[in-house]
Write a protein that binds this DNA or RNA. Structure first.
Lengths: 152, 152
DNA sequence: ATCAATTGCATCGCTCGCGATATAAAATAT
DNA sequence: ATATTTTATATCGCGAGCGATGCAATTGAT
């Protein structure tokens, strides 16, 4: 009746579905490495810059610290990272890669290509890819602003 | 070191982040209606076509039934839907809207516009919107095929 | 008609994701 | 210097989301 409520007219459902499908496509690849998709994201953050406080990791991934803390605890239990109190600010937990965590980077370097193969039937050209990345960024930016605005 | 592992080069992270941010933007709007985002999706499916088995709802939303079953149980507890054994196939649970569930449609019809306001600062034109919807569809299609292919 | 394979749904166990709340450390105010 | 506020992290409770497993109804094979 209300055409704005039709599922097929909604961008949000497509985003929701696509994000889950992509995560599912990653799962078997990451399973070989013994990690989950959010853990893979944390590792990418640390591979770029090792030894960050919980807050920085959370901000980078647009997650709350109460999501990241248990995630890191599980990763610590798996021997991927260590956590130490910050020396300057004793409230901070500085998260660092273990040897095992560092060594994972090399095996993980094959993951993006592996995903590419699964997307082979997807008719996206490089231009489409870049445009889409920009559009997603603009959505994220708009909603980040909106979110901080509401917090005031 | 491995540039393919840089977070900023990955479409998947943008998708993941954007999907979560959009869901977060919906949350306050849906909270007024007493429902969550996945429950909103189930209701949209039923508003389009009332009285569907669990499997059809799950397929429409690209979810597994073991996600949808508990979701429906919570919605039944909230008095939004009822579940009855199918008469033709007794394995099926036919899910139908209650009066409360039906009445929610009218209040929900304002939700998409409400979200539009939150996205006001997002510089997307109608053409961008349509193109993005198509691209997301092609990603979902490609990964659906890949998924069913692997199942064989 | 009988037996085997498939299908539809439910249950269990685990990881996320987040709002609400708690606690200690740091920054700021007075 | 002390009191107040803010910040960084942790904990709790709940709703997803999904792989694995179980069970009953249905379908297919012989």
């Amino acid at each position: 009746m209300y055409k704005q409520l039709k599922l097929d007219h909604q961008l949000c459902f497509r985003l929701y579905a696509a994000a889950r499908m992509v995560m599912q496509a990653y799962t078997p690849l990451l399973h070989n490495l013994g990690i989950t998709y959010p853990q893979y994201l944390v590792l990418m953050v640390l591979w770029e810059n090792d030894g960050q406080p919980v807050n920085d990791i959370a901000h980078r991934l647009l997650l709350e610290t109460n999501t990241v803390t248990p995630l890191l605890q599980r990763m610590e239990k798996e021997g991927l990272v260590t956590r130490h109190r910050g020396t300057v600010d004793k409230r901070q937990q500085i998260v660092s890669l273990t040897q095992k965590g560092k060594e994972l980077e090399e095996s993980a370097s094959a993951v993006p290509l592996g995903l590419g193969k699964r997307m082979a039937s997807c008719p996206m050209k490089l231009d489409d890819y870049i445009l889409m990345a920009q559009q997603l960024d603009s959505i994220v930016e708009a909603l980040k602003e909106d979110k901080t605005a509401k917090q005031k």
